[in-house]
């Protein structure tokens, strides 16, 4: 079963306040992905990886093309879906883990992680227990759990960000650079966490510059250059195992 079908997708930024300067970020992107698959996105900085991910999450509005997503409630074109439908999908099925943590200030790490879960789980302590479990697994020092993440180090923020995205086993997960700025041991934990999600049926798109992460994690890899896809290859290391 397919979960995502992207076709003819392009994105051009039209900057009115810079004398209508146009920047082509994505050109004619086509690919599809199966349910339960992990797809890697690689390529140089500025090749359009994050733009593609943001188009799927609708943080960027695609200029042309379609992004068909097979949700539990039927097919949706994420380019055309109404804002309300997107909000519902974000609450229930699609989560996004950005490169940089942007959190609401004055909320403790535990509650940041629980943010989405609080909407469905009215008993806050049950939600917090789940968050503690993930944070412990990712090796975040316990004394930080009830501190404010705005002051955390890069690696600590990254783990908060990831924990927030994976809590509640989303159906479809978009992750931007999950293992950058992490040490080898934590990196291994993150990889296992994502593989575990896959086992439970999640589909994942993951951007990474790290060859080891890509080798361990992905089923297929999409390489990008200048806003286009140059190759889609299945991962030989995954096929053997």
């Amino acid at each position: 079963m397919k979960i995502l079908e992207v076709s003819g997708l392009s994105k051009t930024f039209n900057l009115h306040i810079l004398h209508n300067k146009k920047i082509e970020a994505l050109k004619n992107i086509d690919f599809s992905m199966e349910e339960g698959e992990i797809i890697g996105l690689t390529g140089k900085s500025g090749s359009g990886k994050s733009s593609l991910m943001k188009c799927i999450y609708r943080t960027y509005l695609a200029s042309t093309g379609t992004i068909l997503y097979h949700s539990d409630k039927g097919k949706k074109d994420l380019v055309q879906a109404s804002d309300h439908e997107m909000i519902e999908l974000r609450k229930t099925e699609i989560t996004y883990c950005s490169q940089f943590l942007s959190v609401i200030p004055r909320v403790t790490a535990i509650d940041v992680v629980c943010e989405n879960l609080f909407r469905v789980e009215k008993n806050k302590e049950i939600a917090r227990a789940k968050a503690r479990e993930i944070l412990a697994y990712l090796g975040l020092a316990e004394e930080l759990w009830d501190a404010f993440p705005a002051t955390f180090s890069g690696g600590e923020q990254q783990r908060i960000n990831l924990a927030r995205a994976v809590l509640g086993n989303p159906k479809f997960l978009l992750i931007d650079e999950p293992t950058a700025s992490l040490d080898a041991k934590t990196k291994e934990a993150v990889i296992r966490l994502i593989l575990n999600l896959k086992k439970q049926g999640s589909s994942v798109i993951c951007i990474s510059h790290d060859d080891y992460t890509i080798d361990q994690l992905v089923d297929r890899n999409i390489e990008m250059q200048n806003g286009t896809i140059v190759s889609i290859q299945s991962n030989p290391k995954k096929e053997n195992s």
């Binding site: 930024f13 039209n14 009115h16 306040i17 943001k54 943080t59 960027y60 509005l61 804002d83 997107m86």
Partner: peptide, 15 residues
């Protein structure tokens, strides 16, 4: 313009 808040902040369309 109207849209998702993160879209308005990161990819505003109108001048």
């Amino acid at each position: 313009e109207s849209g998702l808040t993160d879209q308005i902040l990161q990819d505003p369309q109108h001048e």
